[in-house]
Design a protein around this nucleic acid. Sequence first.
DNA 1: ACACTATTTGGCTATATTGCCAAATAGTAA
DNA 2: TTACTATTTGGCAATATAGCCAAATAGTGT
Lengths: 106, 106
Amino acid sequence: MTQQNMARYEARAKIIKAMAHPARLYIVDLLRHTPLCVAALTEKIGADMSTVSKHLSVLKNAGIVSTKKEKTQVIYSLRMPCVLDFFGCVEKVIESTAKEQLIQLR
Amino acid sequence: MTQQNMARYEARAKIIKAMAHPARLYIVDLLRHTPLCVAALTEKIGADMSTVSKHLSVLKNAGIVSTKKEKTQVIYSLRMPCVLDFFGCVEKVIESTAKEQLIQLR
DNA sequence: ACACTATTTGGCTATATTGCCAAATAGTAA
DNA sequence: TTACTATTTGGCAATATAGCCAAATAGTGT
């Protein structure tokens, strides 16, 4: 693989990696309809706020979410809603695998 | 987060995680048009064959690729071509981030 | 200045992933 | 059977990720 190609796939992988965690997927899903502050997300997720904050920084670093400050709060929103399209395919994969396993059982 | 919800997002994350590596992204891209055997993929990627084989098993385990045996070879193909749709959004994110950074520089 | 709220960062340990080598396996062909 | 080819697996060291706690920071309001 050429160096250029390598760099391309690394850049792509960085974005996908940012989505590759249950908590971060949940965050993206929560931001689907409305922007939320860290405290609100933390409450939904049920982890330490510092953990959530780090997840958010991964998403932000990848360019998936964006922030704005409002008084003392930091409001996160979905900068690239197209990532929501991942869910559709992911569900298809899960469903298709489940069906295939049913067939194996017969 | 409820236990059920947790499990849902973990299952989803597993699929996305399988895509979250440059070599595996490249594999998926290579399988886009035609099925390939391990040796062919290994040559394109330029890593140890055992490494490629492990990447392939991650993809297979996630249900993204499938295999068939042909003589002594194992032919991998893209079972869920919808994962290719990831690329579109990923490119959008990269492009949008690049543009934003240009603006910051001015 | 102060106290207060919201968030981020540093530090740490535990766990997971990656990639190479060497060895094992599976299947083919003689 | 043997030799051969293609692939997978085990083992290991290096690196990366996750999540908690405690401490630091940023901004608001008094």
